[in-house]
Write a protein that binds this DNA or RNA. Structure first.
Ligand SMILES: [Mn+2]
Ligand SMILES: [Mn+2]
Ligand SMILES: [Mn+2]
Ligand SMILES: [Mn+2]
Lengths: 218, 218
DNA sequence: AAATATTTTTAGTCTAATCTAAAAAATAGG
DNA sequence: CCTATTTTTTAGATTAGACTAAAAATATTT
């Protein structure tokens, strides 16, 4: 059995690996975990000893097959619980992360699968992130980021890349949410800001925001 | 914030205190927690330092007002989650304890209260144990134990005192569950075993079993 | 390619929670 | 009421996970 600390590391190493596709650095892990680099090194050595990460001193780490399997279980639980909190208990998408951060460590396969059934096998969590199935498989989604759309193109918001509190609260403020249909009105080449129209309003968002919205083009 | 270990100790000290009404011994705590007496002593000292228990060396401990408040929150969460697992996810009453043992440590007042609302403010958990309200208050129930009934008296099973796996599984086997109406057919003075009739069957249970069933007499 | 800066690892310390072994206090039985 | 037994506490060790400071490796600049 893995400790909560080990599980949290595995999950973040997974997330960082997905983002960059290459070896994950000690520093990036430390930053994500809000610990010091020396602590991250300690943990990498431990996880390497347990065969959960492939790790070369000074070079970086990636999840082993075994580690990825474990990570996917945690991601699955995290996203199922987030879905539960929003769909059944009426939380909003910017309130659920910290609670799911705890709930993801509950150990009971049966519980996870019954929760899945209770939620009617959701494919995505409240942030539009795919929920791995019992076997840890994720159904590949064909979404792109909003920043890739051209003027006059249209698409539906299907998720956020950054699910941080501040970003979600910002989206709440400017009234953009999953399911919105968005049309590109103008792209400012100077700073890559994008003016969009979501039927009820026309607003301009920064290039950074445009890079953190997943869109399904029609 | 309390650690999971501290929370578990508080909860068990509460439970032992309820049973016996007097000071709780180091040994009894150690036994409940499945640790050694020396570990229990360490924890008692720590909890005493934090003002959560009143503890006198070699004499025993009881929860302070502050400690009881904390304990009640944990008991409330434990019982709400058990109710969730049975009512919403279809677990049976003998499967939920270990999972609730983990879920009771999730920190979020909002979550607890929304769960309570989602379950429609249950007054008792699947074992018939009262669920403390937001203020940690328990509504006193006027149930008695089956062993106190006399021949020909009748009552409804409203809960179990012992909620251990083995006892619950035994009750499943002999087909007794909460809500059953039971009539005392005979009491054997030699060993206090009791023959009961629950409408569908007539069976004899040991005195020990009779002491672990809560009954509401009509 | 040397010097400087950054990243990563190691060495050593700390705290929480556990354990074993031994000492101290309380209790029970003759 | 004294001795034997049981209970409880203390002392000292261990493990996980964090930290700081210093050393070692790697990367970046002149
Ligand atoms: Mn977590
Ligand atoms: Mn999410
Ligand atoms: Mn617990
Ligand atoms: Mn219960």
């Amino acid at each position: 059995m893995l400790s909560q600390a080990e599980e949290n590391y595995l999950k973040e190493i997974y997330a960082l690996g997905e983002e960059t596709q290459k070896l994950v650095s000690t520093n990036s892990i430390a930053k994500k975990m809000k610990t010091k680099a020396s602590s991250a090194t300690d943990m990498l050595q431990k996880l390497a000893n347990k065969g959960l990460v492939d790790y070369t001193k000074y070079k970086g780490a990636r999840l082993s097959k075994k580690g990825e399997t474990r990570a996917m279980v945690i991601v699955r639980k995290h996203r199922l619980w987030e879905t539960f909190l929003v769909d059944k208990l009426g939380f909003s998408w910017d309130e659920v992360h910290d609670i799911a951060e705890q709930l993801e460590h509950i150990q009971s396969k049966t519980l996870t699968n019954r929760l899945d059934a209770f939620l009617e096998y959701p494919s995505h969590d409240p942030h539009g992130h795919p929920i791995p199935n019992t076997n840890g498989k994720i159904v590949a989604s064909e979404s792109i980021i909003l920043a890739e759309l051209k003027v006059d193109e249209e698409g539906i918001v299907v998720g956020v890349k950054d699910a941080s509190d501040s970003f979600l609260k910002y989206l709440n403020k400017i009234n953009i949410t999953i399911g919105d249909t968005i049309k590109i009105v103008e792209i400012e080449p100077f700073d890559n800001s994008v003016t969009i129209d979501n039927n009820t309003q026309q607003i301009t968002i920064s290039g950074n925001v445009a890079k953190n919205l997943y869109i399904k083009s029609e």
